[in-house]
Structures are given as C-alpha cells and as structure tokens.
C-alpha cells in the first residue's frame, strides 16, 4: 500500500523578537549569535496562543488542503514539549475543535524536538496497517529558554500538521527510519519551567550522531544518494547545525535552503523539521524527492523519504503558505513585552 501526506498545514504566531533585543538585556554579543548560530529573530506566542491553539490552526490548514471530512480521521497525535496541561491531552482539544471526535484514537507525544515527526511516523504506520483511513500528526511547541540562557535566543513557537492517508496524496512517504539511544544532552524535570542542557555535548554526540545515524541508515535502505533529492530538511535548533549535517551527508546548500526557516523563525522544537517540510511542499513540483530528518534530545532522529505527487498543485493554494506566515504581518516586541508575553515577570499572587 502506498501511504503518504494527504494534506499539510502550518501556523505561526505573528510576534517576533530580534536577537539584538535579547542580547541587549543580557549584555551578550549579538553578532556572535547572528553569525555563529545564524539566528536573526524568533517567533513569540501571544499570551492567548499555546500549543493547542497553534495546533488547531495548523490542523485546519491541513484539512483545507486534504479536502476530507474530519470524521474520517482515525487518529490525532500531537507531539510537543510544551503541552498546556501536564495531565489532560492536547489532542482531545484539537480533535474536538476540528470535529474529529468521537471515533478516533488520540495521544500526546513528547520527545523533546522530535515529537512531531514521531506523530508522523506513527500515523504513517497506522494507515499502512489498515487500522485507520487517515491520521492527523502535529508537531507544535511554544518552548521556553531560561532568561539569559543560550536557548532564549532560539526557543520559539509554531506548529505543523500532516494528514496521512493512502489516497489523494500530495506526497508519498516512501521510507522512514528511526534511530535512538539514551543520550542526556537536554532535559526538563517535572514541575520545572525551563529545560537544562549539557552545552557543547548537545552537538557531536547528540544532534550530529543521531541525525547522521538515521539519515545514513535510511539512505542505505533506499539505495539513494543526496544528489537524488530536490530538497532536504533537518531539525534546526539553530541556523548552523542543519546546514552542517546536510553538508556532512553530501547535500548542497540549494537543497537545504527552502526548508531552512530557523534564521527568521527560531527553533520551534517539535514543529521545526515538520515546518521546514511544509515550506518545501508549498513550492514543490510533482516528482520532486524530499529528504527529512528530525532530532529530539534524549536522543533520537526520525528520517523520511518523500516523493511529491501531481495533487500537490491543487493543494498548495488551499491554505496559507509557510513563507507568507514567516515573512508577512510581523509584530516586533521589545524585551519587556516579550517577558510579559512569556510570563517571565514575577507578579504578586
């Protein structure tokens, strides 16, 4: 059975904060973040936006492109590390809002920045098994970096939604592969507001080991080489890592740039590589081959090989495109407003 993407959609907050604005507050060197990590600005959720609201809007866009009834969706999986409730699923609210209840399987996933691709991986498998006709997979986050921490320059917000199925596909998922080990590079304990990370250990033994591991295994499995692809997208915790891993595997900058959103978006965690893929699908042509690889601390990577189908042409314009969300209607915040939006200001009880 051929399985793949029937519809996809993105949603981003309109608010942004520039790297300079954060650096100014902490006396940090903005040019080093801009140049060293290739970060210029990041999205910031408004106080009335959270993973649930971003996920619902992304799912509505995916439904508009899929042109299916929400009642046909048999599974709703939302991957995030910033679910609004510690106990009570994000997915039930999303399913209720889009009208997919009640005959539907639902679960929230968490695997640092990989939870979104995990949802895609599982939905694809359930469709392929015949258990469900369509599955909705969402990666969404409103991540928090501790004030003054390096993560504060990147932790941002956004959501990508995919409806997986076996007919009327806009792209087939030809192969997928997952690679994981226990690697404590980044974590957040229960009841803690901000995550902790292990500095440079998050690089070579964590991000690079797993993205390279999953990618190489999948390329080997498929018998394909980087030059066979039109586009590639990797998890993008900063601007530098995805470009470097792409280059290490043999991908060229032109293949990587379309899905490389992080310089203007920041790291949307569970939304990161899935959002990059939406930007690729927005401009892809039938027959294009796409390589995608996520990364989640802890650690693991999911890699996918996709082939764009003819139906992409009619689906692309049925909902807002990701680059439009990224580039238009931006509202820039000062650090004080940003701190208020992100509840970083202590108030009286």
């Amino acid at each position: 059975m051929t399985v793949g993407i029937v519809g996809y959609g993105a949603h981003l907050p309109r608010h942004r904060i520039k790297v300079e604005e954060i650096a100014k507050v902490w006396g940090a060197d903005a040019p080093s973040y801009k140049k060293g990590l290739e970060l210029r600005e990041k999205s910031v959720p408004a106080p009335d936006q959270d993973v649930i609201t971003l996920a619902v809007e992304a799912a509505r866009n995916a439904l508009a492109r899929a042109q299916i009834g929400a009642q046909e969706i048999g599974a709703v999986y939302v991957g995030s590390e910033s679910h609004p409730y510690a106990v009570k699923p994000t997915g039930t609210v999303v399913a209720e809002a889009i009208g997919a209840v009640p005959n539907c399987h639902c679960a929230d996933f968490e695997f640092a920045c990989k939870a979104g691709s995990e949802a895609m991986f599982v939905c694809t498998g359930l469709v392929k098994s015949g258990y469900i006709k369509y599955g909705l997979a969402i990666g969404a986050d409103t991540s928090q970096g501790a004030p003054g921490d390096a993560l504060e320059y990147s932790a941002s917000a956004g959501a990508a939604a995919y409806i997986m199925g076996s007919e009327n596909l806009v792209a087939t998922i030809d192969l997928q592969h997952s690679f994981m080990t226990d690697t404590p590079d980044f974590w957040r304990r229960e009841y803690q507001h901000y995550p902790q990370h292990a500095g440079r250990y998050t690089g070579e033994p964590a991000y690079f080991k797993h993205t390279l591991g999953a990618s190489k295994a999948l390329l080997e499995k498929s018998g394909m080489k980087p030059a066979d692809f039109d586009f590639a997208v990797f998890h993008q915790p900063n601007g530098k890592f995805p470009m470097r891993v792409g280059k290490m595997l043999g991908f060229k900058r032109e293949q990587l740039e379309t899905g490389w959103l992080v310089p203007l978006l920041g790291n949307t965690y569970s939304g990161a590589s899935p959002l990059g893929l939406t930007a690729i699908l927005d401009i892809a042509k039938p027959g294009n081959k796409i390589f995608m690889c996520s990364y989640g601390s802890g650690s693991g990577s999911d890699a996918f090989i996709l082939t764009v189908t003819d139906r992409i042409r009619e689906a692309q314009d049925r909902a807002v495109k990701t680059r439009k969300l990224l580039d238009e209607n931006k509202i820039y915040l000062e650090y004080g407003e940003y701190a208020k939006f992100r509840k970083k200001i202590l108030k009286a009880e």
């Binding site: 106080p47 009335d48 936006q49 959270d50 649930i52 609201t53 619902v56 809007e57 509505r60 609004p84 409730y85 609210v93 809002a97």
Partner: peptide
Amino acid sequence: LEFRKIYDEGASGIINY
C-alpha cells in the same frame, strides 16, 4: 475567527478556549 485562549482559571485551573 482563530482558535485562541480566552482566559484561564488561574495557573492550576482549566483553560477556556
């Protein structure tokens, strides 16, 4: 119309969307 948080019942209460 967009889906948004309207208000919550404090930090430990339900969130009204």
